[in-house]
Nucleic acid binder design. Structure first.
Length: 419
RNA sequence: GCUGAGAUCGUGUAGUGGCAAUCACAGGAGACUGUAAAUCUCCCGCCUUUCGGCUCCGAAGGUUCGAGUCCUUCUCUCAGCA
């Protein structure tokens, strides 16, 4: 059978797990390390595909759970697949729905949500904790639609069938990620279940690819997902188990804090087969995640934070984050960041964007999203260039010191050769 | 000029005899990591780091154990009529 996807390593950075390379799919290539843009509901919120291209997006990640609910995988298949449906011709990833097992289920039961940083006891959380929307069994997961409460069921096989119908280039295996507050016993149980689900996902995936091949259609790729929370032995067991399977690449799930990147990610990437790409699921809301992820062997990232924070007025600058809604920007006629090359910074001032947010104008969301997404995509692109040019550690030190300040940044440099 | 209705936080309001300050907006700040998120949280009379303390319902009187609330006069606003 021909391959759905290939990965070529161009350069490895001596003394680290970092590398640059190229993922090649039937919809084109992704130069890695790369930031994959969040496109959950078959759209990058507030942006047209042309705007995503202009800000340097190489690929997007959509979500099976959301698209199954609305408009339905059958609708996307009838439209000729997700690329055609949403007018995005470059590579697309789909997440399996596994994250929603967590965000609609255990996360609330445990009294925290998907973002371990968020405050306990906020009104929304209290409201939702009363009604958990997902329930896990060994075979699969019962969901209640967050839209209308309808009962749904998803398991590894159905996730693969939905993902193949949606027709992205790279799929994620259906997994269960656990709350950071879960106990060891439950973490292990969920990890073992994730492994069995990975095998079932792979089996169904290969059957579906066989059908594609017989019909002369494009093949699709599947990446397995490593779990095990913060437990070193479980993470290593998970990487070992999945590393032996015939996946096209790997996702690392259930990582929540920047501190975990330099420990947890390393345990895993040292074990996973070097010749396959690794994706760090859901991380990238701050620059340290990106530098540490790459340093410890990550090839691709995805994160909703750049666009979500943009919609809420929190914007990246090379000197740290600012909240454009604050009163101090009312008469600030500078761009968001003088060194940013994005469309927003080329044409608009802080004062104007401040005004748009205050006036509840929807252009605020688009301009802010363009900026934040460009900031993150460009940072990862620059990290890639710094590896190719053997100046990664200098770039990392300059960037993070400026962004966080010397004191806060110090922890990110432990063990670096130039520290 | 007459008649009527009003005056409570920056604004609009709730409160109709029992610890005044509800709700919204405006304002001040914070959070957000495989998107139940253009969302959420906190502050918003004055003093105090906190604990807490002090004010306060257009003005002045009055009734009452007790008044934002009832009575009298005044000021101002709005509506209708002249």
């Amino acid at each position: 059978m021909k391959k759905a996807m290939t990965f070529t390593i161009n350069k490895k950075l001596d003394g680290t797990l970092a590398r640059t390379g190229v993922i090649s799919t039937t919809h084109g290539i992704i130069e890695t390390p790369a930031f994959i843009v969040g496109g959950t509901q078959a759209t990058v919120k507030t942006l047209t595909p042309e705007q995503v291209l202009e800000l340097g997006g190489q690929s997007i990640l959509a979500n099976t759970y959301h698209l199954m609910l609305r408009p339905g995988a059958d609708v996307i298949a009838a439209a000729g697949g997700l690329h055609k449906f949403m007018n995005w011709d470059l590579p697309i990833f789909t997440d399996s729905g596994g994250f929603q097992v967590f965000s609609l289920g255990m996360a609330y039961k445990k009294g925290i949500d998907a973002t371990s940083h968020s405050q306990k006891g906020d009104a929304k959380q209290a409201k939702h904790s009363a009604s958990q929307l997902a329930k896990v069994t060994d075979d699969g997961v019962y969901f209640r639609s967050h839209i209308n409460g309808e009962q749904l069921y998803m398991n590894p096989e159905s996730s693969m069938e939905l993902q193949h119908a949606i027709g992205a280039d790279i799929h994620m295996a259906f997994d269960e990620l656990t709350s950071p507050l879960a106990g060891y016993k439950y973490i292990k149980q969920a990890m073992d279940r994730t492994h069995l689900w990975a095998d079932r996902s792979l089996k169904r995936h290969q059957e579906l690819n066989n059908e594609h091949e017989q019909r002369g259609e494009n093949l699709q790729a599947l990446w397995g997902i490593v779990q095990g929370a913060r437990e070193e032995d479980l993470r290593k067991e998970s990487a070992t188990y999945l590393g032996k399977r015939d996946f096209d690449g790997y996702g690392i799930g259930g990582v929540f804090e920047p501190e975990e990147v330099s420990s947890t990610v390393r345990w895993i990437t040292e074990i996973l087969p070097e010749e396959k790409p690794r994706h760090l699921l859901g991380l990238g809301s701050q620059p340290a995640d990106l530098f540490l992820g790459v340093q410890y062997g990550i090839d691709t990232f995805d994160c909703v934070a750049p666009t979500r924070q943009a919609r809420n007025g929190a914007l990246f600058t090379y000197d740290g984050r600012l909240n454009i809604k604050n009163g101090g920007f009312k008469r600030d006629f500078n761009p968001i960041d003088k060194e940013c090359d994005c469309y927003t910074c080329q044409h608009y001032t802080r004062a104007y964007i401040h005004h748009l947010f205050r006036a509840d104008e929807i252009l605020a969301l688009t301009l802010a999203s363009i900026h934040n997404e460009r900031f993150v995509v460009r940072t990862v692109d620059n990290i890639r260039a710094s590896i190719d040019e053997d100046r990664f550690f200098d770039y990392k030190k300059d960037f993070l010191t400026r962004y966080y300040g010397e004191d806060r940044a110090a922890d990110f440099f432990i063990g670096d050769p130039n520290n």
